[in-house]
């Protein structure tokens, strides 16, 4: 079993993986970072979105070994010194969730949108950019409001 190293949320980590070990399995099962969720497991729902080398990707559709020596950020890596990231705070403030299952992926996707499109986001852009993140509770209304507010405060 090959050993890989990776930087996850700023910390160097290493672990043994099989070729078939998915990035999300490595994060959840090896590192105990269970904030990243597996929803559909078919790269449609976006609950598993993390950032690899600064880009949002679906960790259920990436091999851990392909991400060796990359920098990975998960939902656990957003808060700083016990203070929520502005996007997390906006989801709390605007109640951008009901059951919360899709929320980590939503927030990681939202931070990625701001990186690519800037802090001033209109509703159409947010809805379009969230195409790869599915929520079955909220009807998206408050998620869109949260992303808009979170983006502005980033």
């Amino acid at each position: 079993m090959p050993a890989i190293t990776m930087k996850v949320n700023g910390q160097a980590v290493c672990g043994d993986v099989e070729g078939r070990t998915l990035l999300v399995e490595f994060l959840r099962d090896k590192l105990g970072l269970t904030g990243t969720h597996v929803g559909c497991d078919t790269s449609q729902c976006g609950a598993c979105v993390v950032h690899v080398d600064g880009k949002a990707v679906k960790s259920c559709t990436a091999l851990a070994i392909s991400c060796a020596d990359s920098e990975v950020t998960t939902i656990e890596g957003l808060a700083r010194n016990g203070k929520l990231h502005p996007m997390q705070e906006a989801f709390r403030e605007h109640h951008g969730l009901q059951c919360g299952f899709c929320t980590p992926g939503m927030i990681m996707a939202a931070v990625d949108i701001v990186k690519r499109k800037g802090k001033k986001l209109d509703e159409d852009t947010i809805r379009h950019e969230l195409e790869g993140n599915i929520c079955r509770c909220t009807g998206y209304q408050n998620i869109v409001a949260a992303v808009k507010a979170g983006a502005a405060s980033m």
């Binding site: 790269s43 679906k58 996707a109 990625d112 949108i113 690519r116 950019e129 790869g132």
Partner: peptide, 9 residues
């Protein structure tokens, strides 16, 4: 194509 996350890969 796909969605933003898919397009990154």
């Amino acid at each position: 194509i796909g969605d933003p996350h898919v397009r990154h890969k």
